[in-house]
Design a protein around this nucleic acid. Structure first.
Lengths: 222, 222
DNA sequence: TTTAAAATTTAGACAAATCTAAAAAATGAC
DNA sequence: GTCATTTTTTAGATTTGTCTAAATTTTAAA
């Protein structure tokens, strides 16, 4: 039930690479972890022996059910620390990832659950990625680009796909961030620009921006 | 400037063992770290090569000036995390030490400085031990047992030497904790019991309890 | 002051995680 | 379908931190 930092980094990397059950290759994993293929093979044998992987030599690997569970808990820790660093210590979005890489390996379950509680059980990290709950479940969400949000339906910003400094500057200026509640009020077909209501303010944004902002939206609400 | 977890644990242990410049022996350190004397000798050679130690074979070792500096930063991280765990996440005094043992090795300086700020630059950890500041300085303090605090002089609880569950229960009941401001109002020679003023309340405590509570006190105040 | 006991260091081995170089297997171009 | 290329695995070495057992040094008792 306890894994080394190295093992955890491999598990997490496989999780991210395999996405929705695709198979991960040795070279892809080596690249992702900035290591060599031979090292990957060694570790795969080890994780395989621990039943965290489905591994067939020469044919890549996927996480076992248990492996996925472990990955979700590592990701939970990572994203909670990211939220903490951003929300409580005031770090910028770009800075939190690197710092959380270290903190995520502190794995005491009670500590993480208390941290979660302290932060108010946030469903998304500062990048808008969902945070698994204490049972490893990820909030299923109705996630769509702001450009497709129906008119006059409240949405909550949950993800921003482009994280360039320019984009962040613009978002800041418009008071849009993860968790911001908004509604589309008008849609101008001429340039696909949108008028939004954000906290009783009317704000205009371009199509380009709207495409990069994702919102959760409850079809039954309102 | 960056040390492994193992190196950090040795440095910290030496710091605690050497106290005010005493020399530390191989066996004492092995005992403290639950390891073997041979392992200690190996590590001492390594730390010595890195100029963190004054080491004369067969005659023990002390931290160099640089070594002490490193130790103080490790201790700073440990105690800040202890404070965080206790104050923000609601862990008990007895629990925080073990958890902080892991967190202390996350060593990004900016992270720790921001944590310090977030916590309000606490001068003492939940056990009452002083927290080195961002330059590695420890608050010099006028530290004495509550039983010796002059009458009507405000003191601040900074350390509790007995940490038994029974003692903690009693302290909780009397609303006494690290940081609590109090004054001695009466001293009864019959049983050496004390009457204190704590937040406008009058509280009675036994001699035994008073001897285990340490306070900082500013001779010039009031 | 000699010598037995205790403390410390050295020597050699091992596990984890990594690497390079070589061998083996799979792939795809013809 | 064969064969060169690419991918993956194996073999053997290295580093870090640890260990046991043996050798060395210090200490303290007679």
């Amino acid at each position: 039930m306890n894994y080394s930092i190295s093992e955890e980094n491999y598990i997490k990397a496989i999780y991210h690479l395999q996405g929705e059950s695709g198979t991960v290759t040795t070279n892809a994993l080596a690249e992702k972890l900035s290591t060599k293929a031979a090292s990957v093979t060694d570790m795969m044998k080890k994780l395989s022996a621990k039943k965290l992987l489905n591994y067939k030599p020469y044919y890549g690997f996927t996480l076992s059910t248990e492996g996925k569970k472990v990955a979700l808990f590592i990701i939970r820790r990572h994203r909670l620390w990211e939220f903490f660093l951003s929300q409580k210590l005031g770090f910028d979005w770009e800075e939190v990832h690197q710092l959380a890489e270290e903190l995520e390996h502190v794995s005491n379950k009670v500590l993480i659950d208390r941290l979660d509680e302290f932060l108010g059980f946030p469903p998304f990290d500062p990048h808008g990625d969902p945070i698994p709950d204490s049972k490893g479940r990820i909030a299923s969400r109705n996630n769509l680009p702001l450009s497709l949000l129906p008119k006059n339906k409240p949405g909550i910003v949950c993800q921003v796909t482009n994280q360039s400094a320019e984009m962040l500057e613009l978002l800041k200026h418009k008071s849009i961030g993860i968790g911001t509640k908004l509604e589309v009020r008008k849609h101008f077909p001429f340039d696909q620009s949108l008028e939004l209501k954000i906290k009783k303010q009317i704000v205009t944004i371009s199509e380009q921006l709207a495409k990069n902002i994702f919102v959760t939206y409850d079809e039954n609400a309102n």
